[in-house]
């Protein structure tokens, strides 16, 4: 892992651990993860179920508390912040794309996209809004309610919302998990473009090697620790790596 200077570092963790339960029922989700995320980079986090990839993302995105270690978004250390500060941080510095249920059903697509800015009481930059909206190809659907949009369109609205407030970092949790392959490709292409063209930092959790191939870097998690990483991945290479990984885990379970 390469050391990055503070300017080019969007987020990092130091010895991040997360333990659920106590005593006999204790489950270690993260066993002490230290990792940096470079600005303007698209990182995919992969790993089998229970490897801790979602927990890592939740802890980094100020959605979950940590047991030990430190989390930085930019230069802000999260673990010592109160709820109000965390809320502000999520609102101003972080964008989210979830697997499902990304949109508020009572608000139109436009209102959903500007939601974080509206909550913050910040003005929408019209130029940037138009750029984002045309990039995701939603210009003619802005007045629709989520129930009037297809699954792929809903995810694109979610992506637009994540980008419109120009956050330091966007966290995407299986953004294509519920989509057919064509819609999934659209969403991933859009995420890719936002990194390439606008320098957005994105961290995406996925179990789909095809999706991971859109990233600049792939982190592999196993049993709560980073076990490997790969730069400039392709779907085949990732799949290959995962296979070995699966075998490794099967062996571990058998023993």
């Amino acid at each position: 892992m390469t050391e990055l200077d503070s300017q080019s570092r969007a987020a990092r963790t130091v010895d991040l651990a997360k333990v659920y339960g106590k005593g006999d029922t204790q489950v270690v989700a993260l066993g002490g993860v230290t990792v940096d995320f470079a600005s303007g980079q698209f990182t995919a986090i992969m790993g089998p179920s229970g490897s801790g990839k979602s927990t890592l993302m939740h802890c980094m995105a100020a959605l979950d508390s940590v047991t030990r270690g430190e989390v930085y978004i930019g230069e802000t250390e999260l673990t010592r912040l109160g709820d109000a500060a965390l809320t502000r941080l999520r609102r101003d510095e972080i964008g989210f794309v979830f697997q499902a249920f990304n949109l508020v059903p009572t608000l139109s697509a436009r209102e959903n996209i500007t939601l974080p800015l509206d909550i913050a009481g910040r003005d929408v930059d019209p130029g940037w809004f138009d750029t984002v909206v045309s990039t995701v190809g939603l210009s003619d659907r802005l007045g629709h309610k989520p129930s009037e949009l297809s699954g792929g369109q809903q995810q694109r609205v979610a992506c637009a919302r994540a980008l419109v407030s120009k956050p330091s970092i966007v966290f995407a949790d299986e953004p294509t998990g519920n989509l057919d392959s064509r819609s999934g490709t659209e969403v991933l292409s859009f995420l890719r473009r936002s990194v390439r063209e606008y320098g957005q930092t994105i961290v995406m959790v996925t179990h789909d090697p095809g999706a991971a191939a859109y990233a600049d870097r792939v982190l592999f998690l196993g049993d709560g620790l980073i076990v490997d990483e790969m730069a400039d991945p392709t779907a085949d290479r990732v799949l290959e790596r995962m296979k070995g990984f699966d075998g490794l885990q099967h062996t571990a379970q058998a023993s």
């Binding site: 809320t87 989210f96 979830f98 508020v104």
Partner: peptide, 16 residues
């Protein structure tokens, strides 16, 4: 519940 969670995730404060 999920909608509330989403709103909180994108930055709605408890007070709001």
């Amino acid at each position: 519940t999920r909608e509330v969670g989403l709103l909180r995730a994108v930055g709605l404060s408890r007070r709001q």
